[in-house]
Design a protein around this nucleic acid. Structure first.
Length: 564
RNA sequence: UGGGGGAUCGUCUAGCGGUAGGACGCCAGCCUUUGGAGCUGGCUACCUAGGUUCGAUUCCUAGUCCCCCAGCCA
């Protein structure tokens, strides 16, 4: 069923059909089940939008937030905290339905003993290496472990002693007794429990055996009454095992696993392993570095939850591997910010100009439109005075044919102000670099005045030198790698990172209205792009992160396109 | 050469028996107190080969290619 934009969501179709047919008694319960071993990224956003969206699609639908914390060595409370913040920030609410797989450890254990009694699970004492050998290969069947036929009582005794801490790590595991000859390797007696003498961030040292994903996940779903358990494609092979666990444990609820294709974004580092490596090697400032596609990184860049949700809605939910272009994500943040972000003037690389015929000590407050797309945003006053800054790129001493901005003798309009003419160029004696420009202005050309309609070939932005606020601007690129899916074997992927991923511009001049900007708010700097006042900046002066440039703005500026 | 999935514009994605639509992107033009935004027009696709059919992207058959699986990770 196509949504407003035409993107498909086959899982929604299934859920809607099940709901209409009265399956599961008409209940719809989904869950977002992150392992708290890292920060959430845009790929998780797809899953979050999907699962919470499904619950919203039917009356009475609910979506749980469940932490799949069955591996004590990788998980910690910081991640739990950040995950919750991000889900909320994205605009979703799990209400009272926050769960932890670790809360089910006792019940999971009970079910395991029952499986043993049913003869459906056994304690294996093979080493990890031997177990691998016995498992066979993709093309050859496995072999039964010599421990496979241990009597139930011995299994029970061993398993209880495993729990009691009688054995070191790796001495034994609990395995499901299914079929060592199955063509599906996941069914060749998968491990249900392993011994790990490690402290868990929630259960401490209460346990030294921990359930595996394949055992804990389906059971946790069933315990919570989840009806539709949505996961990614790589778990398709696990579905028979998922169903086996649910069936053999004879739970009241029988959840259904449905798989979809995970999100890939071109040129973005999306694997948790790599993100963690970037953070740990301090190649980025942290999980919230604006160069990362983490939710927190996107937030610092000025991405809005609305834009991310619209993006997730647009890309659809299917089963084919797909790589979405970064430009599509950027399109959605532009579209969103275009309607809501105020336009302001800022000069990233200042060039001082002096209006020689403008009186000294005089300041005019000129009216500027806050958002042409939204008249309700109103206007603001921008101070104008004798000494101004313009963008270095807006002046060329020897302009080529196609350059229509300021040059010696040339006229140009200052946005919301006057038409000025460049009369002379002053250079630094030592370096020969341009120090400042002298200009004259035409008083009749002020906005609204008699000559205001006079046409000139270009309009440029500016700020008053005496009133401007000095700011730091950080131009972030995404961290690029050559091809995230086809990294040559044996290469250190970090060598593929974009070396120009961060450019810090100090001494930028922004209009005074930005002096006390609220953290996290986004602006459109005229012609320069969208910028977000860094939500977490500790600096005294304003710091702006580039959200995304105006569409192709940089390329066009440098192309010095011809007349308009 | 085992099993499980998947193949429609450059990219995502509709159509599921009547010869392909949308979005991103790109190109051209219009407009503009910035070249942004907006507007107009254009661009390129049904994996291959057979078959069924008046007619197939849609059905059948055989291939091809891509992805996933041999953690006591999730």
């Amino acid at each position: 069923m196509p949504d407003s934009n035409g993107a498909s969501n086959f899982i929604r179709d299934i859920v809607l059909a099940d709901h209409a047919a009265g399956k599961h008694g008409g209940r719809v319960v989904t869950r977002f089940p992150p392992e708290p071993n890292g920060y959430l990224h845009i790929g998780h956003a797809k899953s979050i939008c999907l699962n919470f969206g499904l619950a919203q699609d039917v009356p009475g639908g609910v979506c749980h937030l469940r932490f799949d914390d069955t591996n004590p060595t990788t998980e910690n409370p910081e991640y739990v905290q950040s995950i919750q913040e991000d889900v909320r920030w994205l605009g979703f609410d799990w209400g009272k339905n926050r769960f932890f797989a670790s809360d089910y450890f006792e019940r999971l254990y009970d079910h395991a003993e029952r499986l043993i009694r049913k003869g459906k699970a056994y304690v294996d004492s093979l080493s990890a290496d031997d177990m691998r050998t016995y498992r066979g290969t993709l093309t050859e069947p496995g072999t039964n472990s010599p421990y496979r036929d241990r009597p139930v009582e011995e299994n029970l005794d061993l398993f209880r002693r495993m729990r009691a801490g009688a054995f070191p790590d790796g001495a034994h595991v609990l395995r499901a007794k299914i079929d060592m000859a199955s063509p599906n390797i996941n069914l060749r007696d998968p491990v249900l429990y392993r011994i790990r003498h490690a402290a868990h961030y929630r259960t401490g040292t209460a346990w030294c055996i921990y359930p595996s994903y394949d055992y804990a996940h389906p059971l946790s779903d069933a315990i919570e009454g989840v009806t539709h358990s949505v996961c990614t494609l790589e778990f398709e092979d696990h579905r028979p095992l998922y169903d086996w666990v649910v069936a053999e444990c004879e739970t009241a609820d029988r959840p259904q696993q449905i798989e979809f294709a995970r999100l890939n974004i071109s040129h973005a580092v999306m694997s948790k392993r790599r993100l963690l490596e970037l953070v740990e090697k301090k190649l980025v400032a942290g999980w919230d570095d604006p160069r990362l596609p983490t939710i927190k990184g996107l937030r610092r860049r000025g991405y809005t939850p609305e834009a991310i949700r619209a993006f997730c809605d647009h890309i659809g939910v299917g089963k084919r591997d797909a790589v979405v272009e970064m430009q599509l994500l950027e399109h959605f943040i532009r579209e969103d910010l275009n309607t809501r972000s105020p336009r302001v003037m800022a000069v990233l690389k200042p060039l001082k100009i002096i209006i020689d015929n403008y009186p000294e000590g005089v300041t005019e407050d000129l009216d500027a439109i806050n958002n042409p797309e939204n008249p309700a945003a109103g206007t603001r006053k921008v101070p104008f005075s004798r000494m101004l800054y313009i963008e270095q790129d807006d002046f060329l001493e020897e302009p080529p044919k196609e350059f229509f901005r300021l040059a010696p003798g040339r006229e140009v309009r200052l946005r919301y102000a006057y038409i000025i003419q460049c009369t002379s160029v002053t250079k630094e004696p030592s370096t020969g670099r341009i120090a400042e420009l002298h200009c004259t202005y035409d008083p009749e050309t002020r906005s609204g005045a008699s000559q205001a309609q006079r046409k000139v070939k270009a309009t440029i932005h500016w700020v008053s030198a005496a009133h401007a606020v000095s700011a730091e601007v950080r131009l972030y690129n995404q961290l690029l790698i050559a091809d995230q899916t086809k990294l040559p074997a044996g290469h250190d992927w970090t060598t593929y990172l974009n070396p120009q991923s961060l450019e810090v511009l100090t001494g930028c001049q922004v209009e005074p209205s930005l002096k006390d900007t609220s953290p996290g708010s986004a602006y459109q700097f005229e012609r320069l792009g969208y910028f977000c006042a860094d939500p977490d900046s500790k600096s005294g002066s304003p710091v702006f992160n580039r959200t995304v440039s105006l569409k192709d703005a940089w390329a066009k500026i440098h192309k010095v396109k011809g007349s308009r």
